[in-house]
Design a protein around this nucleic acid. Structure first.
Lengths: 143, 143
DNA sequence: AAATATAGTTGTTTTTTACAACTATATTCT
DNA sequence: AGAATATAGTTGTAAAAAACAACTATATTT
């Protein structure tokens, strides 16, 4: 890692921060906040998970998480079922409506990416995917 | 762009969002907010720029920008000089102290990256840089 | 069974961001 | 030139997001 390399990494970080900001802004036009969408994502992909698991995986405050979950419950997107093993904890399940809601957001997100990338050549597209996968692999080993 | 590709891009976005969040958390241990650091960056790299230029390039609210600039002025990190051509606008210049302050933050950021990446092999490091540069080029053409 | 730890809730504060009204200077358009 | 309109920046205020702390209830440790 030379000084030049560090500069390049940081330049990429600034660049990609912008990209992500752009994508996030899109989500914020939905009726959900960024936090809510991230939590919904976890709920969808970890059927039956618990609040503390989400808390750890997203690194968010448990107080705020608790309130978002309560809000989802009120909107009938989520049901809680007290754990048999541990009376303090609850299994979290999206309702059918909750899953639909997530899928709608998810589709909108995918469409947005597709729209942004629609003009890429096949070669560029392949390279993009390859580079992203490469970065993920390389950086997965440093954390 | 296949569906699979979209999924991969989004997976990378989630992954990199985490990375950036990690790096940002570091900065937040400094006495400056993320917004302040970003503004300081612009001030450093665009000697003599104006508030509206920064506003556009960072896509931030002019009210908040104005307050940060006033704060920097109060801390003697920044001087304003009314533009000759346009009496509404001012040229912004970091003072020597301002530049030093930025450089200190900048160095801390670089050290952090270096620390994170110190265990990469030369091959992985080269690939990382290459991939990042590739992504930047590819995505620069889509915006 | 007392002490300690953990899961989650609730209340409160702080920080960040967004929105709106306003001043002062510039520009445009008769 | 002068009225109307636009732009740069400031200031006030509100809304949203995040952080912090105290508390309840259940589990675990000793």
């Amino acid at each position: 890692m030379t000084e030049g390399n560090i500069t390049d990494v940081r330049s990429f970080n600034r660049f990609y921060t912008q990209i992500i900001g752009l994508l996030d802004k899109h989500i914020l036009n939905s009726q959900y906040s960024l936090l809510e969408v991230r939590i919904l994502y976890e709920l969808y992909h970890r059927e039956g998970t618990s609040a503390s698991e989400i808390m750890l995986s997203l690194n968010i405050d448990k107080g705020n998480l608790s309130r978002v979950l309560r809000y989802f419950e009120k909107k009938k997107l989520l049901t809680k079922k007290r754990s048999i093993n541990d009376g303090r904890s609850a299994y979290l399940h999206l309702t059918v409506a909750g899953k639909k809601e997530f899928e709608a957001l998810n589709d909108a997100s995918s469409r947005q990416i597709k729209e942004i990338l629609k003009n890429l050549s096949t070669a560029d597209c392949d390279r993009l995917i390859q580079y992203m996968a490469g970065i993920k692999i390389i950086l997965s080993n440093v954390g």
